[in-house]
Amino acid sequence: MNITPQELKYFADYIESQLGIVYAPENYYQLETRLKNIADFLSLPDANAVYKKAITKGINGTFKQFLLDTSTNNETSFFRDFKVFQIVEEKILPSLQVSFPNSFNYRIWCCAASFGQEPYSLAMLVHEFLEKNPKHPPIEIIATDIAEHALKRCHEGVYSHLEVQRGLSSVRLLKYFTKNDSDHWVLKPEVKNRVKFQTQNLLEPFAGMGIFHLIFCRYVLIYQDNERRKQIIKRLEKCLRPNGYFILGASESALGVSETLLHVAESNVVFYQRN
């Protein structure tokens, strides 16, 4: 028996409530494929039988585990590509005062805030760095995103237990989060207050953004065509100080786009530095 759109919506709503991942109706076919995989795993005949099991017996145990598991492809995480964050922690932050001797405060732009995992990962590193170096000038983090609903979640700083386990060590979980009554984890102010969020479409002028020492622009340009990608990189480069660092996602490249963005490879991580 075929599963109906209303039945698929039941799972879409459940996944959104658990993971914050939104399945729009036009993507319900993906959900249906995933439910068929779950049917195989649970030895059920089809996706409709999975729905019947859910409404009669509830979604729990291994069933819940498998449903959440198959729904989380491409979800963002804290410290995504943690080697990149190692470079920030071990190389970039300690070198700021040497690379920019005339700066009295340092600025980081995170271009795709998404649900906040990336800017807050940076904020944790900055917090730890400033704890160790209390006389260091301030480091400001600006995080932007085009999506209002994403920024709303950033402002809340509240994450499900699956979200906080994705990329975040248990030591940092305990250090920077407290658990609330609804079993979610709430970011503490010492990290939350380090990030300023604002709306910014990367295709529109960067008016008022200012100049940065480090720009994180990861996993956004993959959604743009080649020409737009080049234009965005060139415009971001103008927001970088000389010697400023520019970091893209693992599958993205600025090679051939600009002569002033120098390609640097360290510990299997590629980043760029403006000359």
């Binding site: 819940k64 585990q65 959440l68 598991d69 989380t72 995480s77 237990h161 699956l162 386990q165 994705r166 990329g167 248990s170």
Partner: peptide
């Protein structure tokens, strides 16, 4: 420390 339920990517990572 991993809290159940978890997903494959969490435990692998």
């Amino acid at each position: 420390y991993i809290m159940k339920p978890f997903t494959a990517d969490i435990i692998q990572q």
